[in-house]
Amino acid sequence: MSNLVSVIITTYKRPYGVLLRAVQSVLNQSYENLEIIIIDDSPNDDPNRKEVEMNIRNLNDSRVKYIQHKSNQGACKARNTGIEASKGEYVAFLDDDDEWIFNKIELQLEKFVDKQVGLVYCDSFTIILRGNEKERKVLRANRVSGMVYDKLILWNFIGSTSFVMLKKESLEFCGGFNNELKASQDFELWLRISKYYKVDYVDIPLVNYYIHEGERISANVDNKIQGLEKINELNLEYLKLKPRVNSIRKLKLIPYYAMKSGYKQALKKWFYAVKIYPFHRESLIHFAKIFYYNNKKSI
């Protein structure tokens, strides 16, 4: 008998039509032994909430389960609720405004033939929405497999939660999403898993990843700083042994400090990072970014 795959879709103040697109992309998968767990994390006064609940329950598909938080608790808590409710040997996540290509589950499952693999990610199409127009791009980058922690801590090449499938065992061993982080929670989880399990990938686009015009990292600069600083703190033991990596991790915060507090604060952070590991290519790049991002409102 084929393994059960649990697909967790978290939704927050999303119109039913958009959520349905995500749900249908899972129901239409070539792999059929799955369950869909929808976690509605919208506030009680959200006008979409009743419509979403009614229509999801009217799908009349035994594979679809609907769970409602009594109040908004955040994406991390919502995904952890889904993990706790899941029964599959494998767990995948889908954001409510993204959608999967029809054979995503099938192709990712094949990579778990290696029993040491705990996470499989994939490539994606990025679709930028500008009014009624769509601009479609393929994300391509250097893909890495194996025991990847040393490389992953330098750069999150795994990407969004919509891109991954996890062995449930890896979540039970490493834990779920960290509620203490206000941003980059997915990256922090990937790092934890990569310490103990192999990572593999399917090097073709299997997700339509939507970006809405006007979405800006700078709208949550404080959250981004908190998340990145927390990741550095959680990996401090390793970073102390790797001065260059430690320096690069601190340099990644420079654009956000420049936007938040201006170039003086960013320069202080830059000098501290360079002191840890004197001048290297990344330090020069981020020195230029200080003035580019100084008090800017978007990245």
Rank of each mutant, 00 (worst) to 15 (best):
I217S: 13
N156V: 13
N3V: 10
S194W: 07
D114F: 05
A266Y: 00
V221T: 15
D186H: 02
Q265H: 01
R21M: 10
M1D: 08
E106K: 08
N33P: 02
F163I: 05
L166S: 00
V207P: 01
V18E: 14
S261W: 04
L236G: 03
S6Y: 03
L284P: 11
I276M: 06
S2G: 08
S162E: 05
N55Y: 01
K167F: 06
M54Q: 14
N132G: 10
E53L: 07
F177H: 01
N28D: 08
W155I: 10
L139R: 12
N220R: 14
R216L: 08
E53F: 07
N223P: 04
N179S: 12
K268N: 11
K70Y: 15
S62P: 09
Y257H: 08
N80G: 05
G146W: 13
S184L: 13
K296M: 07
L181Q: 03
A141V: 12
A22T: 00
V138I: 13
N60L: 09
L236M: 12
G74M: 09
S2N: 15
N132S: 11
K198M: 11
W270I: 04
D40F: 07
T126N: 10
V245T: 11
L189I: 03
K111L: 15
I56T: 04
I248D: 08
I39C: 00
L20I: 00
I211N: 04
Q24G: 02
K268R: 12
I128F: 12
L94V: 06
M147H: 15
D150A: 12
L236S: 09
Y12G: 08
N220V: 14
I101W: 05
L206H: 10
Y257Q: 02
G82N: 02
N179F: 10
P15T: 09
I204L: 15
Y293L: 05
I9V: 14
K168L: 13
F112D: 06
G146Y: 12
P243F: 05
V23Y: 02
V7E: 07
D150V: 11
A75E: 14
L284M: 14
L267F: 02
A258C: 01
D200K: 14
A219P: 03
L206Y: 10
D203N: 15
R136N: 08
L166A: 00
V199R: 04
I9R: 01
V144C: 13
K65Y: 04
R63V: 06
R192M: 03
L152K: 06
D222S: 15
I101M: 09
F271T: 06
I105W: 02
S247T: 03
W100V: 05
R63G: 07
I67C: 10
I37W: 00
F279L: 11
V26F: 02
D45N: 12
I83P: 06
Y16W: 06
W190R: 05
V113H: 10
A78Q: 10
D40G: 10
S25C: 04
C122I: 07
D41L: 02
S298E: 11
D200S: 15
N60W: 04
L228C: 02
K240G: 07
E32S: 11
E99T: 07
G227Y: 01
Y277M: 08
N220D: 13
V52M: 00
W190P: 00
S145N: 12
Q68I: 14
C122S: 15
Q265T: 03
L241C: 08
K168Q: 14
K242V: 04
W270P: 01
L228K: 01
K250L: 09
L234D: 05
